[in-house]
């Protein structure tokens, strides 16, 4: 692989604050990452970690009046945060598109599926309605919707959850985006359907050569689809690396805790090793490492200032003062 290739996405020191009369919520506090073309990055985190907020910033989907975004986001040749609203609409759908957790809210209930796909195609490519419909059919076959002609004429509520998710993906892929943002797209699906959608997404990503940023709270889903993984906690990326490095050899205590508290085949006789406590209040973040109050490895220095990212291997870094101790523990877990 050409290591000097320019990243498709560059996010630098992204900060997002939601400001209201009652509070100032620091949702994202200095996030930086790169995404290479046709690479899949999974952002893992629990609710309130800022994973969705980070991704939505790339499409500037936050209500502008209540949101303060600072930092730098580049996608392809577009400097996202300095684009006009009109230029942004050109980017949305054509260069970057997005799939959501709940397709019922993303698809318009009063239009047929086919018309929704065709409309996106026509708006961005200016082709005729007939051509757009032909394209829509092609897309529905691509996302493996059975009897696609019939489904094109269906309304969203007439489809099952799995088919709706596929239809939404067809809408998202209609203009061959170079970057696909996926916000927990399989979380609401049944297990048997979830794996079908993941396999399909993996194939489409390879065929289209798309870059994908995939937000999930499920480590199992990340293991299925990710090349790179970024773990977020309290609005910061606390660990970053290849999927095998992060999930099999975690270097941050939070990632380690997340892995050991995820139920998979533990003995019924023992308790699960849970992370005690709950995430910090984003309105009043502690000054040092935000995970320190829940961390069994914490030392006094952890609460002094936020620890910088420490490289623990090629392309694998964690922001923790105690990576060495943590890695010993995680090796023990792996063996």
């Amino acid at each position: 692989m050409d290591m000097s290739a320019r990243p498709l996405v560059e996010v630098r020191d992204l900060q997002v604050n939601f400001v209201s009369r009652e509070a100032n919520v620091a949702a994202v506090n200095g996030v930086s990452f790169d995404l290479m073309p046709s690479e899949v990055l999974c952002i893992i985190g629990e609710s309130g970690s800022g994973k969705s907020v980070t991704m939505r910033s790339i499409l500037r989907l936050h209500p502008p009046r209540r949101t303060v975004i600072r930092g730098h986001i580049r996608v392809g040749d577009y400097d996202i945060l300095s684009l006009s609203e009109r230029a942004m609409n050109e980017v949305r759908g054509a260069v970057v598109s997005m799939v959501f957790q709940e397709p019922m809210t993303a698809l318009d209930p009063v239009y047929r599926i086919g018309d929704q796909i065709a409309e996106t195609v026509m708006r961005h490519e200016g082709c005729s309605h007939a051509d757009a419909m032909a394209r829509a059919l092609e897309l529905m076959e691509l996302v493996k919707v059975p009897s696609p002609e019939r489904r094109l004429r269906a309304f969203p509520h007439e489809l099952s959850g799995g088919l709706r998710q596929r239809a939404m993906m067809a809408v998202a892929l209609s203009c061959r985006p170079t970057l696909l943002l996926a916000d927990e797209p399989t979380t609401a699906l049944d297990a048997t359907v979830q794996i079908q959608v993941l396999i399909m997404l993996r194939k489409l990503q390879r065929d289209f050569g798309m870059g994908v940023i995939f937000v999930t709270h499920d480590l199992g889903v990340a293991a299925q689809i990710a090349d790179k993984v970024a773990v977020m906690y309290a609005g910061r990326i606390i660990e970053y690396g290849s999927v095998a490095d992060v999930l099999m050899r975690p270097a941050h205590p939070y990632t380690l805790g997340l892995l050991s508290s995820t139920v998979h085949g533990q003995s019924r006789e023992t308790e699960i090793e849970a992370i005690p406590g709950s995430p910090p209040d984003l309105r009043h973040l502690p000054p040092g490492c935000s995970f320190a109050p829940r961390c069994k490895f914490a030392i006094p220095a952890c609460s002094a200032s936020f620890p910088p990212l420490v490289a623990v291997g090629p392309n694998h870094a964690a922001s923790c003062l105690r990576v060495d101790v943590v890695r010993q523990d995680s090796m023990a877990l792996a063996s």
Partner: peptide, 13 residues
Amino acid sequence: CRLTVDPATRIET
């Protein structure tokens, strides 16, 4: 259909 956290064991079909 159960997913594991090991990326080496991806489900292909």
